[in-house]
Design a protein around this nucleic acid. Structure first.
Lengths: 170, 170
DNA sequence: TGAATATAATAAGCAAGCTTACGATTATTC
DNA sequence: GAATAATCGTAAGCTTGCTTATTATATTCA
């Protein structure tokens, strides 16, 4: 577990296709519970279910895909229900929004705060998404922006390509 | 003119609010004509009009905003008409798509090729968008991606913040 | 216990982004 | 000048993303 965490922090983390997904899901849910408790926020059933739906893959899901996913195990929720849960999860750093896809992704790196910049690696073959923690590149990027007097706030960095596993498979 | 070009290449280029917009538009249209001629592509009236609509500001416009813009000077074009023109312009490196906004932007830097990575600086006050040419940061970013075996292809780097001019104005 | 707050469900609908299908028009080429 | 290809227009519609409005259900706490 610590091993896992350290990896996601130290270098770009791409979910290995053979990783223990049950565990990674369970860990993430436990982590979410923890976070909510610390913040005195309620991790309600619907919020848990939405997070679980996102965790069911490492792929970003559109809001309507989340609805479809939830519909499998409960009466089909209305869009508003899911959007509220997503807003909550994002506000608490448990879910990222992938801007270039209008989609949502369960956060894999449990250690960064909600606001820090993250870069995403999106595999165009398998659809899995990895995260690069900000530290390494954000400084350069922000410096480049600032050099023209621009004050950066929010960065969207989304890199499409082919993950290591899919390269081997090809 | 050369001066202008050099600047857009050398460092992040944010359109100054007092720049000669008439000229910058005319330049861009002339450049587009040139590019199309070189490639034996047709710079048809509709393509020119769509590009001109995008050039009318330095803001990214949604497809329907482009339609609204065109509707001012011609019978309202159908979505498909505009999308076709946008596809053409993007394929020829004359227009960028801003992924995080589902919007389109006339390319300001006339010198980079269609495929090279560009970072966008999006001012949340005035809505203007500047470009950072890739060279400076793309290497780092790609290196970070590659360090986990990921083969990057297309990068989306979109930075929201406040431009120099709006900071002064505040 | 009753008032206030947070959360959720129901119902309905809007807007944006994009596509398919097909016919008409205009260039290009042989 | 007929055949081909590229471009454009018309018409229709689909999907997704997201919102407003309203009512109901918990939960908290004075």
């Amino acid at each position: 577990m610590l091993e896992y965490r350290r990896m996601t922090l130290a270098k770009p983390a791409f979910p290995a296709p053979d990783h223990d997904h049950g565990r990674c899901t369970a860990d993430a849910l436990a982590h979410a519970e923890e976070v909510c408790e610390q913040r005195a926020q309620k991790f309600t059933p619907i919020r848990r279910q939405v997070l679980a739906a996102l965790l069911s893959s490492h792929r970003p899901l559109g809001a309507y895909e989340v609805i479809d996913e939830l519909a499998k195990s409960m009466p089909r929720p209305a869009p508003i229900t899911v959007y509220r849960a997503l807003d909550f999860l994002m506000a608490n750093g448990l879910v990222h929004r992938i801007e270039s896809r209008n989609a949502y992704l369960a956060c894999a790196a449990h250690d960064h705060d909600a606001t820090s910049a993250v870069a995403f690696l999106i595999c165009e073959r398998c659809g899995l998404v990895g995260e690069i923690p900000s530290a390494s590149f954000a400084k350069d990027l922000n410096a480049a922006a600032r050099s023209s007097g621009f004050a950066p706030k929010l960065s969207v960095v989304e890199i499409t390509g082919v993950c290591a596993h899919c390269q081997k498979a090809a």
